[in-house]
Every structure is written in C-alpha cells, then in structure tokens.
Design a protein around this nucleic acid. Structure first.
Lengths: 191, 191, 191, 191
DNA sequence: TATGAATGAGGCTTCATTCAT
DNA sequence: AATGAATGAAGCCTCATTCAT
C-alpha cells in the first residue's frame, strides 16, 4: 500500500472510532507508523485527508447506485433487493458512514458531502418508485418526497446499527414497513 | 435571567450552531458578555454545561410523552396527532436536537442521552401501536421493532429539517407513509 | 472564637496539611464556613494570614525561651531538660513548624521568620553552653557555632518527626549524642 | 547541549531559585529561549521535569556513596573524610539539594525522593559506625539511630549553607561535634 | 520522500482579589 | 460585619503546521 493510502485508511479508522477532533496528527502518525511531517507531504491539511475519504466514499456509493440502476432497467430489482443491497453497503463501509454521521453537523466539508449522498439515495429511490408505479406494482405516491423519506429512515437505522450495535437488527422489519406502505398488497400477503 | 441560565442558553445556541468543540470557553464568555471565570462559578466544566442542557431536554421530552400518553388513554390521539406533536416539538426545541444529533458520536455524555431519548420515543410509539392493534385500527405488526423504525424515520427527517432547511417540509408525506403502512385502509382513502 | 481567630486557626491547619499554594481562599472559606469576602475584611491578603501565623509562632517560642532562661539562671536546666522542652514544643506546635519548614524556601516572609527562629534557638543554646562551661560541666567548645549546630540537628530531627512520622522517635538518642559531645564524661557513664 | 538537557538544567536553576510553583512553563521557556510547546515534546508534564532532576540527583548521590564505601573497605576513610566529601557534594549540587529541601513538604514526588536520599545517607553513616566499632575506634552507639541523627544534622547545616549563605561555615565545627560524640578520645585531644 | 524537533496560538481551568448588596 | 458573584490574569497543556536535515 502506498504511504498516501496508508494514511488514508488509518485516518478513516481513527476518525470513525474517536471523531475528527480527537484524531490528532500526532496520533495518526504514530498509528500509521510514519512521521508527522510525512502527512503534510501527501495532504495539504487535516481537513484535506477527510476530503479524500469523503470523495472515495462518494465514488463507492455511485458504483452501488449504478449497479442498482442496471438491475432496475431489467426489472430485476425488488424492494427487498434495493434495501438489502443498501444494508450490505452500510456493513461494508461502516467506517465511512460513521465519519459522515459524526461530522456533518460540525464541518461544512462533510455537510456538503452528506447532502450529496442523501440526494443520490433519494434520486435512486425515486427512480425505483417511478418505475414501480409505471409497472403497477407500487401505489401512487409522491415519488420525490417518498424517496427522501425512505432515504432518511434508512439513515436512521444505520445510525442505530453503527452506534448502538447492542440493538437487534431491524432490517427485515424495516423492509416490511416500507413494503406495506408502498407495494400493492394483492401481490404478497404477510403474517 | 440568572447568570446560570444565561450561560446555559448562550451555550445551547452556540453548540447547536458550531458544535461542542468549536464553542470555546472564551467564545462563550464573550457572547454571553461575562468573563471566562464566571462560567466556572456556575458549572464544573465545559462538559457539565452540556450535561445540564441534555438533562433539561430530557425533561421537556418527558413532558411531551406524558401529554401524548394522557390523550392516548382517552382514545383521542390519531397517528397524525402523535407525529404532528413530535414535529412541533422539534421545531420548538431545534437547538437541543441539533446538539444531540451533532455530538452523540463523539461524546459519551450525549451518546447516553440520545439512547435514552430514542428509547423513550420507541416506547411511546410502541404503546400507540399496541393500543391501536387492540382497538383494531392498526395492522398486526411487531410493535417493538416498528416503534424503533418510526422513531428513526422521525430522527432522519429531523436531521434534514434542521441541517438542510432549504428542503421542503416532508412532514405530511411522512405521516401518510406511516399511515399506509400501519392503519387499516378501509377507514380512510388517500389520493 | 472570633472570626479572625477562626480564619487563622483554619488556615494554620490547612497550610500545614497541604502547603501554602494549595490552600486557596475558596478552600479556606469553605472549611472555616465563612465567605471568601470575609477573609479580606480581616486580612489584607493571603500572605498576610501567613504573616499573622508566623508572628504568633514567634511569640510562643519566645515564651519557651524565656522559661528556659529562667530555669537556667537557677541552674535547674540539664541538657535533657533543654532539648526535652524543645521536643515537647515541637509536638505542641507541629502545624506552625510544618508551615515554617514548608515555605521558608519559597516565601521571603517565612525565610525571614525562620532566620529569626533559628537565631533565637542558637542564642538560647549558646547561653546554655556558656553557663555550662563556666560551671565546668560542659567541655570547652566554640559556643556560637555549636549552638547553631545543635539548633540545626534539632531542626533536622523535627522534619523527620513531622513529615515521616512512621520513623521511630530519635529524641533520646539525639540527647545522648549531644551529651557525649558536650558534657564531661565523669558525671555520667553510658553503654 | 541537547534541548532536553537545556530544559533540565534551566529548570533546575529556576526551581532552586524560586520554587517549583513559581517556575511556570512560560518562565521556563522564556529563560531557556525555547517555546512552551517544546517543553512538552521532551517531558510529559511539569512534574515530569522535576522527576528527571530528582532521578539524576539520586544517581549522583549513589556514586558518592559508592566511592565512600570503596574507601571504607580499605580503612581509608576518617570521619573528616566522610563528612567532608558530603559537604563537598552539597557545594557541587546545591541546586538539586535546594529543590529537594524546598519541595518535599508539598510534593509527594519529592517527599519520596527525599526519603530515599535520607535513607541512603543513614545507611552509609550506619556502615561507617559499624566498621568503626568493629575496629575499636568508634564508641558503642546505636548505629541505626545515630546514623539518622548525623544525616539530619548534616541536612540542617546544608539548609543554612544554602539558604542563609551569609552565615559563616560551620563544617569544621560540625565535624568536631560529631568526632567528640563518636570517636574514642585517647586517639586525639581537642582544645 | 521522509523525519521529528520546534513553534505559537489557543484551549480549559484556577485563583486571589474586588464590590455591590 | 458578612456575603458570594464576578473578574481577569495567569497556569498547564495540546495541536496543526512548518522546516532544516
């Protein structure tokens, strides 16, 4: 791994564990086993490291969104698949998401990044709903707003999953909750 | 207003605006027009100020929960009322909630406070669902998990409302989303 | 007890226990159950309190010295009596002495007070030696220097007694040490 | 000189001159012509500096004690030599000793260091007495207690020497005082 | 590229002293 | 006489950033 990537991945772990303010350049250097000066050879500032982390994260989410869209265009994506792939994404990228959730309220940098992330999710869910309505499987709802609502419910559950791991997993119940609200009941019954 | 309350309310504003770390004791003193030393006549530490804010907030939410429970016991509380009173609560206490949302991931103090808050909300929603199911107006759902899901959807929407106020208000649509998922359709039609 | 004396005696205890710097006016007021402001009605400053304590101590030692001189003038004071009365004085005034020993190196105030104290002791011991030599019971020694040496041996032992109370009591052995050095052996044999 | 040693030696001078509390990190940095932050690159805290000074001092005394013991084992060490080498040690390490004498009553750190120092001196003097008694040059005395008494007399004289340098030097007289008390008179007469 | 010592601004907190009541 | 809130200077320490090697 290049020194730059080493710094990036170490910083990602540390910020997600202790927060941006409590990761100091001294801590970071010690944990990455480099010198403090080296950090500044690869990044302009501490915030610049965060910027790179957030940019990488955005790319990863765009990949997921692309895959979902591809499957949607072949009518191969159920609501379970859509939400399920998102839950899996959270599990695979928990450090990034903890960083986003932990700093959006104090750093403009992350605030913008999170806005972009939410907007991408909302757009994807909106597209899902629009296609479903066109095919007659989804009830008639306000797609823009409802996309936002699902995105945010999703965010809320992620927070619990990441910060209160002692709670059981609500994923399945959450999918049911959405299904009941969105999908015409005749196609599937539940207990 | 007593000096203690002045410090408390100034700190509440500042923390919600810039975050706990960026509210320094020097800033706080300047904005409250007192000296830095005075802060420590009324509070043991900077964290102690936050503790007081969080305790006050918890009390306020317990009042709301108490009122909701009272109305529930007279069957006077629709899902619109329940969620509506919560949206109103957020508007009235936006600074407190921004503080909770902005620091739970970095301060154990707030982490515990937020856990308490979520648990209170979940409990209230669970009670609402249980009563509705007994009366036959709410579908059979897993009340514990579903309470959590609603609480977290709610949290997600609050975040948008508080940090991206440029977005339109999703409250009404969110109520509909829940209603569709939870309430038997015969009693009400939607567009 | 007057408020002034209450402050004085509380301060004496505190300074001897924790040192002058660690006795704060806030601590002192709390322990004496008065307000901080009251201290300044009776004393000009924190150092002024110490000044009073030291002055009182000096008076008490002058009384002891006076009594010793009175008994010396009647030839009623053996070296055991002289040192013994000093050891007793230390026990009765341990707080004052701890204060002197604990602050002479950092406060000019006490430095002067301690110099006065040592000089008084030296003078008393010198007088004792001079009389003893005149009577033929004490060897011929340099009275001025030897007075100083005894005074300082005495100080050294006080320090142990006060700060390392876990050590056994060396008083008797110290008296023997001095006796051997000063008193003609024919009048008493030792093992 | 390395920066660490510069800090150490500057701090040693300052603490011995004005006391531990009155040497502030700002003062120290200014006098050593470094920045305050630099202090903390080399030491964990202000107390840590003191710890290093005390440890160095302990090492130096252990060297002296080792040399004395070596000469004792060849019967080459008179009481004049023993006390004389200690007086010389004080002159050469006056700053360290002032620090010990000035802070043992307020800092546990130094209290322990001083206890160690006294105990080492006592042990050395005890060994001297025991050998002397075995050889028949020293009177029969309680070696443990007497070692302590000499050590403390010595400490007392050091204090005068260091804090009241205007006094004449009592060293020679002190050696005589001890000699009279300890050494069999037949081998030497005094005036 | 990498190091790590040095910087200095700024953070939180303490404390002797003052002053209106 | 007594109170106790308020002050502000100063104390210890941290940390992002720079720079000579």
């Amino acid at each position: 791994m290049s020194t730059k990537d080493l710094i990036l991945s170490t910083a990602k772990d540390m910020i997600s564990e202790v927060g941006f303010h409590k990761m100091t350049t001294a801590n970071l250097a010690r944990r990455a086993e480099i010198s403090e000066g080296t950090i500044y050879r690869h990044f302009e500032s501490k915030e610049d490291i965060l910027q790179h982390i957030l940019d990488n994260f955005d790319e990863k989410y765009q990949q997921l969104a692309g895959q979902c869209r591809a499957r949607m265009s072949h009518n191969e994506l159920s609501i379970e698949d859509l939400l399920g792939s998102h839950f899996a994404f959270v599990d695979a990228n928990s450090a990034d998401i903890k960083i986003v959730l932990g700093t959006y309220s104090i750093l403009d940098l992350t605030r913008r990044s999170m806005a972009r992330f939410i907007e991408r999710m909302r757009g994807l869910f909106e597209e899902f709903l629009t296609r479903g309505m066109a095919r007659g499987t989804v009830r008639g709802v306000a797609v823009h707003d409802t996309g936002m609502i699902i995105a945010n419910m999703f965010f809320g559950l992620m927070r619990i999953k990441l910060y209160w791991p002692e709670y059981p997993d609500f994923s399945a119940e959450a999918v049911d909750f959405c299904r009941r609200s969105l999908i015409f009941v005749e196609e599937k019954e539940r207990s």
